[in-house]
């Protein structure tokens, strides 16, 4: 094996390494939004105007906002101008606190959640699962229990049993577009 062959082999290996690196870079494509330091992609659950379904809507938020608090704050911002969806919570509802313990998120919303709520089984379901589904996209959250004004609730508007934490409900969800 001559010196020339050896050099060719090194060149080939280098080329191969370059090709592999290039291929890897190609495969991962443009840097994913989830890892971009500028922002991460999350979903908030808004509703259709006729109150039949929830719709997962994409938002880019700061990476540090990918938290229970950040998600609820993003949800409460509601739809952007021109979006066909609606926020199924009273518009002036505020987040008081949220904590995750043993995979259960306990979220405490302000009194407006009840006082400015129009009622109805449909209204109540969409309100509750907009919150539950939005929080449950976080890997650390499996169940969600909703509090209002710091109080544990038997129900929000007289239909749903809110005494125990709820699982997310995807039967209410349709895909965007």
């Amino acid at each position: 094996m001559g010196k020339g062959t050896h050099k060719t082999l090194i060149a080939l290996v280098v080329l191969l390494v370059i090709i592999i690196i290039w291929a890897l870079v190609q495969r991962s494509g443009p840097p994913s939004v989830a890892t971009d330091p500028a922002g991460a992609e999350v979903l908030i659950y808004l509703a259709t105007r006729d109150g039949t379904s929830l719709v997962p809507v994409k938002r880019i938020v700061d990476v540090e906002k990918v938290s229970p608090q950040g998600l609820i704050e993003e949800l409460l911002k509601g739809p952007r101008p021109g979006e066909p969806w609606v926020l199924p919570l009273p518009a002036n509802t505020r987040l008081q606190s949220v904590a995750v313990v043993d995979r259960v998120a306990y979220v405490d919303l302000s009194e407006e959640m009840i006082e400015f709520h129009p009622g109805g089984t449909t209204g109540e379901l969409l309100t509750v699962y907009a919150v539950v589904n939005t929080l449950a996209q976080l890997p650390e959250v499996e169940l969600v229990q909703i509090f209002v004004g710091g109080r544990e609730l038997e129900t929000l508007m007289g239909h749903l049993d809110l005494r125990t934490p709820l699982e997310p409900d995807f039967s209410l969800v349709i895909e965007e577009h």
């Binding site: 105007r49 006729d50 926020l87 199924p88 129009p118 109805g120 449909t122 209204g123 239909h159």
Partner: peptide, 17 residues
């Protein structure tokens, strides 16, 4: 027996659970 509601007036109709 209930009567339904939603935040927006596009919602209408009958449903049973």
């Amino acid at each position: 027996i209930h009567a339904n509601a939603f935040r927006f007036q596009e919602a209408c109709g009958t449903e049973t659970f």
